[in-house]
Design a protein around this nucleic acid. Structure first.
Lengths: 339, 339
DNA sequence: CTGAAAGCGCTTACAG
DNA sequence: CTGAAAGCGCTTACAG
């Protein structure tokens, strides 16, 4: 390993000088600079980050945290997009990205994660903080580690998609088309805050239109395609008169669509199906899925920018991203049953 | 920040003693141990990793490297599954995961990545090393950094799916069904080694069955659903007699399926379409997609286990994972055209 | 403009 | 069984 000392020796100067030349401190002759750079070049010197971290406290690492709530976290398109955005921003700043997926329980995140936070290894953390039982950022805030939340936990610095609005939009859309018998595929309340917000959005659209939200049938899935299929089948068996089904994420909606077709329904003629997320596949399903776009890639990008601002002493403003209804062919007016 | 020194002071012992107690060195009285542990407890001491790294050279970080070749790397299901497997293994070993997505060009991976390798920050690296122009692991090997390749670059320690076999299997399947007019949706040769291997597999199945592989029409996509649709449309316009299309990944096959349907083909009656990867959506397309399962999640898991073996001084054997043909409903016998 | 020295927090021979 | 001391590789006041 080439160290500062070796470079210094070769260049015939002190290690302090090498260090200063490399960190672009002013005050040294062009001659010294050249000697040093030549030695650095010849020796292929690369600073040891642990050494630097120990003396400066800066590691140039930020952590990206996804609480581990269900098996397949990385298959969630939201997670992918956040990852993509965070990666892009952090590497553009010359920072490295540490990925952490702590287990969370009502008593808090796991010890490994807690230790990581205090280890001095990371300068800050961006976390998807949407699990109602526990906030993975609470410990970071206690320890005054710069952190930005993507999600609903109360946090000074956060970015979140307006799930309430998205919920309203998708329900409004169905109501406008004339639907009243609407089944809902959701997810267990304690699993995810965004989903609860979407539910609230659905509710307020109903209320605004004089529909009793609580009378609409619901089934709980687990975000997966499979669960969407199962829920759809239960919904349609118990309530054959449903004219529309809302899946609170696209994957469940897609599963529902397949199942409904197997059960003999034509989409959208017999049954409208709408989703939420606007994942790439939503565009390519048969028929293409009406859904809500929540600008997921922006979430990660913005959160990371906020984090760097914070690390540099700024006070970034929190952000709420608007959602947009994406009209495709899986939704239409209900057929008139009694004519 | 609580340091060893503070703990030592509180426990009334030397910092050396605290350090030894914590690292489970033998030789100290139960009484000392208790005093130390109590102080650790009370102060909430967590070792500073930079300090430890500097004196031991162990950082408890491994890097996972995905060369950045096309925009949407994290949307590739293969990447997701590798990530999942690597994450699971490394966190089970108490290691943290650093994600790196270097830009690669014919002259090699980018400087940031090169610096990371030499920074002393990482104990080893697992890399998806399938881009023909450049191996991201070549620099790691030069620098004697423990590394495991997922892919085809020649590397002492590697794990790879048997793409050649997979290619054979999918082509064999179509040939057995009676197809001879087969269109292929592939990807530019210099983009990905796995794909070239699959192509070779297709070729050998053809050769074994007396079919001239080079006469089969091909189109180049870019892994995306969209590109699959575009390629299928070109293929079907130029060669309307095709009875089957192979997509060299599922997403392109899925795009092809949608486009073929729009062009009036019924799948599989008028046209068989098969894919490669067995992504979750393959099961839920209409009709469900015949494809090749390559045990992607295992790739990451095995590679990481090999890396830890290597770090601990072992010499793990390289692994080639077999593929499996997954029969679904998107493939069938071709219709007899001239009866 | 340059360098000697202290210090970041830890571990590890080496004495005792 | 315990501790003093050196050292890991770097940066940063402080002198000169």
């Amino acid at each position: 390993m080439t160290t500062l000392a070796k470079v210094a020796k070769r260049a015939g100067v002190s290690i302090a000088t090498v260090s200063k030349v490399l960190s672009n401190t002013p005050y040294f002759t062009e001659e010294t600079r050249q000697k040093v750079m030549l030695a650095v070049e010849e020796l292929g010197y690369v600073p040891n980050l642990a050494g630097r971290a120990l003396s400066t406290g800066k590691t140039h690492i930020i952590a990206l945290v996804f609480p581990y709530v269900y098996d397949t976290i990385f298959t969630d398109p939201l997670v992918q997009h956040i990852l993509e955005g965070v990666e892009a921003e952090s590497s553009s700043q010359g920072y490295n990205l540490l990925l952490s997926t702590p287990q969370v329980s009502p008593s808090g995140p796991d010890d490994n994660y807690l230790r990581l936070l205090q280890s001095g290894y990371i300068e800050g953390v961006v976390a998807l903080d949407n699990v109602p039982t526990t906030s993975v950022l609470a410990p970071a805030r206690e320890k005054k580690i710069p952190s930005v939340a993507i999600g609903y936990w109360e946090h000074e610095f956060s970015v979140v998609s307006n799930d309430h609005l998205g919920g309203e939009q998708i329900m409004e859309h169905l109501i406008e088309l004339g639907h009243r018998d609407i089944g809902i595929i959701t997810v267990a309340e304690d699993l995810n805050y965004s989903i609860s917000q979407r539910m609230e959005g659905l509710r307020s659209a109903c209320t605004a239109n004089g529909i009793d939200f609580d009378s609409l049938p619901q089934q709980e899935g687990d975000f997966s395609i499979e669960s969407g299929a199962t829920c759809a089948s239960k919904l349609l068996e118990q309530f054959p008169d449903l004219t529309a089904i809302i899946g609170l994420n696209d994957r469940m909606a897609l599963g529902a669509m397949q199942k409904a077709r197997q059960m003999g329904r034509t989409i959208p003629d017999d049954l409208s199906i709408v989703g939420y997320d606007d994942i790439p596949n939503a565009q390519y399903s048969v028929p293409p899925l009406t859904t809500i776009n929540q600008q997921a890639p922006e979430l990660g990008r913005i959160a990371t920018r906020m984090l760097f601002d914070l690390i540099n002493g700024g006070q970034p403003a929190s952000v709420i991203l608007p959602t947009e209804l994406i009209l495709r062919e899986s939704s239409a007016q209900p057929k008139l049953r009694y004519q």
